Computed example of a mutant assay.
Amino acid sequence: MPNHAQLNNVSHKDLRIITARGAQYGDSVMSALTFPGEFRDLQAHYPIVFRKSADGSFEALALFGFQEGENLFLGPRGWKANYIPLAIERQPFLIGINGEELMVHVDLDSPRVSSTEGEAVFLPHGGTTEYLENVNSMLLALHNGIQQSRGFIAALLHCELLESFVADIELDDGSQNRLAGFYTIHEERLAALGGPALEGLHRAGYLQAIYMQIASMSNFRALIDRKNRANAA
Rank of each mutant, 00 (worst) to 15 (best):
M1P: 11
L7Y: 09
N8Q: 08
N9I: 03
I17E: 03
A20W: 06
A23V: 12
S28M: 09
S28I: 04
S31W: 12
L33A: 13
F39I: 00
D41T: 04
A44K: 07
P47N: 11
P47Y: 09
K52E: 15
A60F: 01
L61K: 15
L61C: 12
L61F: 15
E70S: 00
L72I: 01
F73D: 00
G75L: 01
W79I: 07
A81T: 03
A81M: 09
A81Q: 03
R90G: 00
R90W: 02
N98M: 09
L102K: 11
V106E: 03
V113D: 11
V113N: 10
T116E: 06
E117Q: 14
E119S: 14
F122P: 00
L123E: 09
P124G: 04
G126Q: 05
G127N: 12
E130H: 12
E130P: 06
S137M: 08
L142K: 06
G145N: 01
Q147V: 15
Q148L: 08
G151L: 08
I153S: 13
L157F: 06
H158M: 08
H158G: 12
V166Y: 12
D168L: 04
D168V: 07
L171E: 11
D173K: 09
Q176M: 14
L179W: 07
G181N: 11
Y183R: 07
E188Q: 13
A191V: 08
L193F: 04
A197Y: 00
L198N: 04
L198T: 04
G205S: 02
Y206A: 08
Q208E: 15
I210R: 00
M212Q: 11
M212S: 14
I214P: 06
S218V: 13
R221M: 12
N231S: 10
A232Y: 04
